[in-house]
């Protein structure tokens, strides 16, 4: 069953106009109001215990989507349902409990820890404040959490400035897990780390996932990272969901041309010769997105239909959905699943 369900989520950022702009607009002299549609009618469900990878280029709205899912940012439209019930309609008490059950791990481990608090304070603060543990059990709880994320017990009294990037990210993970969340959103959680440390953290996440207890969204721009860790993968392009399927389907039978282009660009081991022609052009400005299918200016198969009509997300096989008007033939066999 689904724990977290996002339905037709939309988020528009508008330039904040001052009084002068508004007055100038009234007489027709002001700057044109600008709207950025960061997330455009995205619907996703997160099943119990699964890890959903969310992939896209920078600026495609994946972090915005994560922050909306974590209730850190209000959506401009659409509903977020927690165990079937819209969070917005819940009694304040239940809504708080729901929000607490959705935790987030942030990208930059240097900014996501309070520099004035020790590791122990950081991890214990929320469980103590919410009465999830008793003060006299806190030492044992702390030891358990540190062990869970692979941190040595003697780091408990250190402050963030005395920790490495990987250690900080482990503290960030422990902080999120300390309130026993049911959903954890990893927002580019390994992007700021060295590759070797990245691998350690990814292995930790795989272990934690195997222990069960939480479903998660793993937001990343790196297909290889997502491939390693996710059960299902959703691909975003300029705020829209273009394709979603389970991991092996995405890698074996990607349907949307954008997904195929991403796969072709992802570096592979053993791929000796590689033509680097898959994705032409720059990512269009989200302030002024292309008409119809957002991908048409970069798509080798674009037609007039693509230029005029937004393709609906349609079912193209068991749980595999794609937002392309056409069923393009599979050109080259993709590499085998991980």
């Amino acid at each position: 069953m689904s724990v977290l369900e996002l339905t037709e989520i939309r988020r528009v950022f508008s330039r904040h106009d001052g009084a002068l702009d508004r007055a100038m607009n009234r007489v027709g002299l002001g700057r044109k109001p600008q709207h950025l549609v960061a997330v455009d009618d995205v619907s996703l469900t997160l099943q119990q215990g699964e890890m959903l990878g969310i992939v896209g280029e920078s600026g495609c709205g994946k972090s915005t989507l994560g922050r909306i899912a974590a209730q850190l940012l209000p959506a401009s439209g659409g509903t977020v349902r927690w165990q079937g019930q819209p969070i917005a309609d819940m009694a304040p008490r239940d809504a708080r409990a729901a929000r607490r059950a959705i935790q987030m791990v942030f990208q930059n481990p240097y900014a996501s820890l309070n520099p004035a608090m020790s590791v122990a304070q950081t991890i214990l603060e929320a469980p103590l404040a919410h009465g999830l543990i008793r003060r006299r059990d806190s030492a044992a709880f702390l030891a358990q959490m540190l062990d869970k994320v692979g941190l040595a017990p003697d780091l408990a009294d250190r402050r963030p400035h005395a920790l490495s990037g990987g250690q900080r990210q482990r503290v960030g993970i422990a902080r999120a897990l300390a309130v026993s969340p049911e959903v954890v959103i990893f927002d580019e959680a390994v992007a700021a780390l060295d590759v070797s440390v990245q691998a350690q953290i990814l292995n930790l996440l795989v272990d934690l996932k195997a222990q069960g207890g939480f479903a998660s969204m793993f937001i990343s721009h790196d297909l290889n990272v997502v491939r390693f860790i996710s059960d299902r993968i959703a691909i975003l392009y300029l705020g829209r969901l273009v394709e979603i399927a389970d991991r092996d389907t995405i890698f074996a039978r990607a349907h949307h041309p954008y997904t195929r282009a991403l796969l072709a660009e992802a570096p592979q081991l053993g791929g000796a010769k590689r033509r680097f022609t898959a994705l032409k052009g720059e990512l269009p400005s989200p302030l002024n997105p292309p008409s119809g299918c957002h991908f048409h200016p970069r798509c080798p198969h674009a037609t007039d239909l693509c230029r005029s009509t937004r393709p609906a997300l349609r079912d193209v096989g068991a749980g595999h959905r794609s937002a392309c008007h056409y069923d393009l033939p599979q050109v080259a066999p993709q590499t085998q699943g991980a």
Binding site: L72, Q103, L113
Partner: peptide, 14 residues
């Protein structure tokens, strides 16, 4: 603007 404040809000601290 720092993430740790965001994290504190996410933890539903008062």
């Amino acid at each position: 603007g720092q993430d740790y404040i965001e994290a504190a809000r996410c933890l539903e601290l008062p």
